[in-house]
């Protein structure tokens, strides 16, 4: 395909290079932004505390924001291809509400029952979020009776989302002490990301990118309609299960480490598509890069705008991603072309 469209191939490559350069710049910027500013970086060679702040806090959270953004961008591209729906986002199958419920119940039970403490100490909040996200997706699949029926899957995802969300709200109402902490989870935060979290996210990202790349021809086929995809000889049932698994794994990992970060998964693929028209293989990789850049930028702003306090990063991703997308949309419609 690339030989037939050399122009688009080159464009995709340019975008990838551009995004990687932006990532490098953001990494440098991320290391020098925080409660004490760039002064920590300048003094880090002779000040152990500054070194620690840079090495153990700023670096992992900057890298973590990049990785989480990449996971969400990738998941968004897979979701939109899989459901053939431009509004699909990574949280569609209920993983967001599942993760919230996991975290809320963990926090509500913590400090109440000794038995729960024992299990929670092993699982941790991250574990609770991940388990919640995965269970919610499984519940969606169960309610939809498998992955074959796109519409049924979407509806089941919405139902699971609403019901689990309601249970979370109920828990919050009954234990108001956890409301504040829960809000910081719902709006996302990279403040808890250490090197272990980065390693987990990097491993999952590598696996997901590889898997999505290998199965991208299915998404290309699906773009032509299910009947056509079937007639092309694609093994749709198995491939769909595998793609849903990738989607759930990528989203669950990102959500568990950083909370519910809004809009990155939805906006990243659209931002890529507005620049280049390409196949799903490249789109997923580019969307991952785009998501990474978007979340890194938002995270740096979140730390910098009101330092030494912090803004919830989810608010900024919504404003940044949403604003940019809106601008693109209007620019395109102004010229008479849809997004």
């Amino acid at each position: 395909m690339s030989r037939r469209f050399p122009h688009q191939h080159r464009q995709a490559l340019l975008l990838a290079v551009g995004l990687l350069l932006a990532s490098a710049a953001l990494l440098l910027l991320g290391v020098s932004v925080g409660s004490t500013g760039a002064e920590s970086v300048r003094s880090m060679w002779h000040d152990a505390q500054a070194m620690q702040i840079v090495r153990e806090i700023r670096l992992p959270r900057t890298v973590g924001a990049w990785l989480a953004g990449a996971l969400l961008g990738l998941a968004g591209a897979v979701a939109q291809g899989l459901f053939r729906n431009p509004l699909a986002d990574p949280y569609l199958l209920g993983s967001a509400s599942g993760a919230s419920l996991g975290v809320a119940s963990a926090m509500a039970l913590f400090g109440v029952s000794p038995l729960a403490m024992h299990w929670l100490a092993r699982l941790g909040l991250t574990g609770a979020a991940f388990v919640g996200a995965v269970l919610a997706v499984l519940l969606t699949l169960l309610l939809a009776k498998g992955v074959q029926h796109t519409l049924r899957l979407l509806l089941a995802g919405v139902i699971v989302g609403v019901v689990l969300g309601a249970i979370t709200s109920l828990i919050l109402l009954l234990t108001p002490e956890i409301m504040q902490a829960m809000q910081s989870f719902m709006l996302g935060s990279t403040g808890f990301v250490g090197w272990t979290a980065c390693a987990v996210m990097a491993a999952v990202l590598a696996f997901s990118v590889l898997a999505a790349w290998m199965m991208s021809h299915v998404l290309d086929g699906l773009a032509l309609g299910e009947a056509t995809a079937q007639s092309l000889g694609l093994r749709l049932p198995q491939m769909r299960v595998a793609l849903v698994a990738v989607l759930a794994l990528a989203t669950g990992t990102a959500v568990a480490q950083t909370g519910l970060i809004a809009f990155v998964g939805l906006a990243a693929p659209h931002l890529v598509r507005s620049v280049v028209k390409t196949t799903h293989g490249r789109l997923t990789v580019l969307a991952a890069l785009m998501g990474a850049v978007l979340l890194s930028a938002a995270d740096i702003l979140a730390r910098w705008l009101v330092a030494p306090q912090e803004l919830p990063v989810g608010v900024l991703t919504a404003v940044l991603g949403g604003g940019y997308l809106l601008w693109l949309m209007h620019r395109h419609t102004g010229r008479g072309a849809g997004l």
Binding site: E56, R61, M107, F110, G111, G124, L125, G194
Partner: peptide
Amino acid sequence: VGSRSMQAMASYPGWGS
């Protein structure tokens, strides 16, 4: 800290120092 803050269970990265 209040127990709800779960400092004991999940500390923040880099707080060891």
